[in-house]
Design a protein around this nucleic acid. Sequence first.
DNA 1: TATAAACATGTAATTATTACAAGTGCAAAT
DNA 2: ATTTGCACTTGTAATAATTACATGTTTATA
Lengths: 140, 140
Amino acid sequence: MMDSALNTLLEYGIHPSVQRIAIMDYLQKHHTHPTVDEVYVALHQEIPTLSKTTVYNTLKLFAEQGAAQMLTIDERKVCFDGVVTPHAHFLCKDCGKVFDFPLSEEQMYVGCPTKESGFEITEAHVYYKGYCSECKKKRS
Amino acid sequence: MMDSALNTLLEYGIHPSVQRIAIMDYLQKHHTHPTVDEVYVALHQEIPTLSKTTVYNTLKLFAEQGAAQMLTIDERKVCFDGVVTPHAHFLCKDCGKVFDFPLSEEQMYVGCPTKESGFEITEAHVYYKGYCSECKKKRS
DNA sequence: TATAAACATGTAATTATTACAAGTGCAAAT
DNA sequence: ATTTGCACTTGTAATAATTACATGTTTATA
């Protein structure tokens, strides 16, 4: 059931624990770009002893190890994405939903500082903002 | 002196006030990607009655009107950029500094959802993260 | 099973941000 | 010039997100 989550943790050199597996499993099954709070509220049901601090620590760890992405597209809240293959994100300024958009690795890193610049790049994010089709209708 | 700031406000349809002009002037003269607090602390000297709420309101207004950019590259703090022409941003994970990198409008919007998708795009941000040349040296 | 290291927990503190009500000052109209 | 209204600013208080830290628990290994 949670084998995929466990494997992902091992793959990224993260020591597995009940909580970490559950959180990774949640990320992999819910592509809703959840916040810390959303993950906490959802998992608190199954694991009543889970603390919010653990969710903070764990998601931060995942992001540091490259097992998940930390998204800062919405200034009001940080959210997370279990999909680490290259893609872009879109934030609707009306409903606040975050959408995925296809973008190749090549496109993500177009114009990115090269090694010669002396900068070492570890991640790239492409964020679009505007209005999703649903909200666009409502507004007109 | 602050004519450029005043003109920018008028250009973006923002009613000028002493505070708004001073804040825009600060943004235009300091390309340091300041936070609300940094702007507040700096200007509080010249304008002792300036309140932090006003800085919040004003920078938010600038961003909404397109007269400045709100950057969410650093999850720890929102910062602002008075340069609204297309370019990318780089955050050093060690020292926390934000650097500008050249990027054409075309490159910024590579792979961006088209009108046919039903999405309306109002802004795009390209963020890189890693280690700047200074910090890279220290780490090795 | 003893021990140490790694993890998780909960509370409290901190910080960033927003809400809101009251005050101020400019600008148009009389 | 004076009044009136509106936009803007202010300060305080509330809210929400995040972090620090000390304690407790689990896990792995000898």
